[in-house]
């Protein structure tokens, strides 16, 4: 860990000014990922601006009838918030499927969006990595890539985004509220993270001086038919090999509205609108689900160790959609489906 100075932010716009004035500035909130990366010398800020002082911790209703998650609300407070549990249980489940109680108490909702990949090579300075050091090469391609991406990869990078929460936010069509030098703007969740292409050093589309202030959940009801299914190497406290956020609105047995997003398979939470469209208007049957699963994975590419994820993802999609259709998940049984 390098040496840095530490200050506390006084206001959002002041924090933005501090960051735009100095590339060495990093915001710190929960710190769970940043300090880990600093200890590995992957992140080396010269100044930390502690934003925990900013008034962004509340979870409130929006004028449109949705819910606004303050960027500094902790993952734990969000997952167990009565309104989130009641109206957005998919989000509760996804958050609780991630990390550990201790980490969820520290990690913030805004910070969750900025989690960096768990790629072994990204984390090890002894090996080349385009994300860490652009142009140095991707060691995972042709290397050990069991946990790596199968969708949206590039020749530069096959890293995955590690978040569970973000998979649910993608499925729920969340909006990210951002403040920068030029004021406030909103970013559709699907546009927040990006694919690696030839610039894997950038995980998201924000300008360097922008700060996330809130995440808005739209006023849509997926509280009955949903599933967050996470498959991993142990029952808890492990990153997803594949995870699926599935949410349906049904009329009888017909799918009226569908949401489908995957984690552990791409550089960003992988929402597939085409597959969602394949589901809409169709009967909620295994046959329908299989077609959607095949569509999601049709362009998938395995790199050796991770090739199993293609089949695993298909099966996980079918299972998650089935569970969603059956409405078998409930927020009160938080861990029932953490690893079936």
């Amino acid at each position: 860990m390098n040496s840095f100075t530490y200050t506390r932010a006084t206001a959002v716009d002041a924090a933005v000014r501090e960051k735009s004035a100095d590339d060495g500035v990093k915001f710190i909130a929960g710190g769970t990922n940043l300090l880990d990366l600093m200890k590995e010398n992957i992140e080396r800020p010269t100044r930390l601006v502690d934003i925990n002082t900013l008034p962004l911790t509340t979870i409130d209703s929006t004028p449109e009838g949705g819910l606004r998650l303050g960027a500094l609300a902790t993952n734990a407070d969000t997952a167990w918030h009565p309104e989130v549990e009641k109206r957005y249980p998919l989000l509760s489940q996804a958050i609780l499927a991630g990390a550990s109680p201790q980490l969820r108490n520290m990690a913030t909702d805004g910070g969750n969006l900025f989690q960096r990949t768990r790629c072994y090579y990204f984390y090890d300075l002894a090996t080349p990595c385009n994300k860490r050091e652009p142009g140095s090469g991707c060691s995972a391609i042709g290397g050990y890539n069991r946990i790596h991406a199968i969708l949206g990869t590039s020749e530069s990078c096959i890293a995955t985004h590690p978040s569970d929460m973000c998979v649910a936010l993608a499925a729920l069509n969340a909006t990210v509220r951002v403040t920068g030098k030029n004021g406030e703007r909103t970013v559709q969740f699907a546009d927040f993270h990006r694919l690696p292409e030839d610039q894997p050093q950038f995980d998201n589309t924000l300008a360097p001086d922008e700060i996330v202030t809130a995440i808005d959940l739209p006023n849509e009801d997926f509280s009955q038919n949903f599933s967050y299914l996470k498959l991993r190497d142990r029952t808890s406290y492990a990153f997803a090999l594949v995870s699926v956020a599935a949410a349906l609105q049904l009329e009888g047995n017909t799918i009226k509205e569908a949401r489908l997003a995957l984690g552990g398979v791409a550089h960003k939470p992988w929402r597939d609108s085409a597959a969602e469209n394949l589901l809409k208007g169709q009967p909620a049957t295994e046959e329908t689900f299989r077609r959607a699963a095949a569509a999601v994975l049709q362009d998938a590419k395995g790199y050796g160790h991770n090739t199993f994820k293609i089949e695993l993802a298909k099966r996980a999609i079918v299972r998650a959609l089935k569970q969603a259709a059956e409405g078998t998940q409930h927020a009160t049984e938080a861990f029932k489906n953490s690893n079936p």
Binding site: Y6, L35, S100, Q102
Partner: peptide, 22 residues
Amino acid sequence: HGQCGACTVLVDGKRINSCLTL
């Protein structure tokens, strides 16, 4: 690195990993 929990303490009554906070 927040991967084991041995450093767990309570801060304002909540459990956290003390290795990942300053």
